[in-house]
C-alpha cells in the first residue's frame, strides 16, 4: 500500500445549479499511474480542473498530502500548484512564444538558473519528448502531436511531483500514443512521479494504469475505483464491463423489431 498523495473527499462538482458529478471519494497513491475514465461528457476533464485548482468544488474537499487544497489561502495553494505539471488536451502552449521560451518560462520564473543553464535544460526536456532541434519553432509551425509533446516538455520543466494529463493520446497516431505511454511509465519509474491521466483509450488504460476511478454520466457519480485490470476481472457492474470491453461483453443486438 502506497501513501496517499491526493485524497478526494465527497467532492461534488457543479456549474451553477447544474451538477456534473457528486460524492466522489478516492485516493491517489504516491507513485501511482491513476486513470480517470468514463464515457464522453461524464466530467472527467472537469474533475481534472478541480484537482489542479482551476475550478472550486461545490462541496467536498481535495487534500494534497495532508493539506486541504481549497481551504488553504491563495499563497499556499500556489505553492502546491508549483509542485504539479499539467499537459492540456490542446497542449496550451503560449502561441506567441517559441517552444524554447515556453519551456524556459517556468524555469526562469521559479529557479535560480542562469540563461545558459536554462537553455541546456530546455534542450534536454525537448530531447526527452523527441523534439530536439525544435527550440526556435513557434507552436503554430509544428503538428498537433508535436505540440502535445512540447506541452509535456513544458509540464515536466520543473520536475513536478505530480503530472496531470488531459486526454494525452487524443489526436496522436497509435505509435506516438504508445511512445507517450512508455514515456509516462518511465517517468513514473525513474523519478517516482505520481501521474493522473484523464483518458478513455482502453489500450492506455490497461497498459499504464495502476489505479483508477470510473465516472458515470447517467447516475452522475463514480461507480468504482481500483486497478483497471482488477475492475475488468472482478466488477459485476455491466456499465464498467461494457466500457472496459468496448461493449463486447454484452453483444445482444436486436434486429427487425424496434
Amino acid at each position: 500500500m502506497t501513501t496517499a498523495h491526493i485524497t478526494v473527499d465527497h467532492l461534488t462538482m457543479a456549474y451553477g445549479d447544474f451538477v456534473i458529478q457528486r460524492d466522489l471519494s478516492f485516493t491517489i497513491g504516491r507513485g501511482e499511474v491513476f486513470i480517470v475514465m468514463g464515457g464522453s461528457g461524464c466530467g472527467k476533464s472537469t474533475l481534472l480542473k478541480h484537482l489542479i485548482g482551476l475550478h472550486r468544488p461545490a462541496k467536498g474537499q481535495v487534500y494534497y498530502d495532508k493539506q486541504n487544497f481549497w481551504r488553504a489561502d491563495a499563497e499556499q495553494r500556489i505553492k502546491v500548484m508549483r509542485r504539479i505539471g499539467v499537459l492540456y488536451q490542446s497542449g496550451a502552449l503560449f502561441s506567441s512564444l517559441t517552444l524554447a521560451e515556453n519551456i524556459a518560462l517556468p524555469l526562469g520564473e521559479f529557479t535560480g538558473l542562469n540563461k545558459a543553464e536554462i537553455a541546456d535544460m530546455v534542450s534536454y526536456k525537448l530531447a526527452l519528448v523527441g523534439l530536439a532541434g525544435f527550440e526556435d519553432y513557434y507552436p503554430a509551425e509544428i503538428s498537433g502531436g508535436m505540440q502535445k509533446r512540447a506541452g509535456l516538455a513544458r509540464a515536466m520543466a520543473l520536475d513536478p511531483e505530480i503530472l496531470f494529463f488531459d486526454e494525452p493520446s487524443a489526436g496522436l497516431d497509435p505509435v506516438s500514443a504508445r511512445l507517450l505511454d512508455d514515456l509516462i511509465l518511465s517517468l513514473c519509474d525513474t523519478l517516482g512521479t505520481t501521474i493522473v491521466v484523464v483518458t478513455h483509450e482502453l489500450a492506455s488504460i490497461f497498459a499504464i494504469g495502476t489505479n483508477s476511478v470510473f465516472l458515470d454520466p447517467e447516475s452522475k457519480t463514480m461507480l468504482a475505483t481500483g486497478n483497471p485490470k482488477k475492475l475488468l476481472a472482478e466488477s459485476d457492474d455491466p456499465r464498467i464491463i461494457q466500457f472496459l470491453t468496448r461493449g463486447e461483453g454484452r453483444g445482444d443486438k436486436q434486429k427487425g423489431v424496434l
Partner: peptide, 17 residues
C-alpha cells in the same frame, strides 16, 4: 480571448503564475 480559448491562461494559472 484567444489565449483563453487555447487554455493558455489555465496553463499560466496552474504554473503558479
Amino acid at each position: 480571448g484567444t489565449m483563453n480559448v487555447n487554455s493558455e491562461i489555465d496553463a499560466l494559472k496552474t504554473m503558479g503564475i
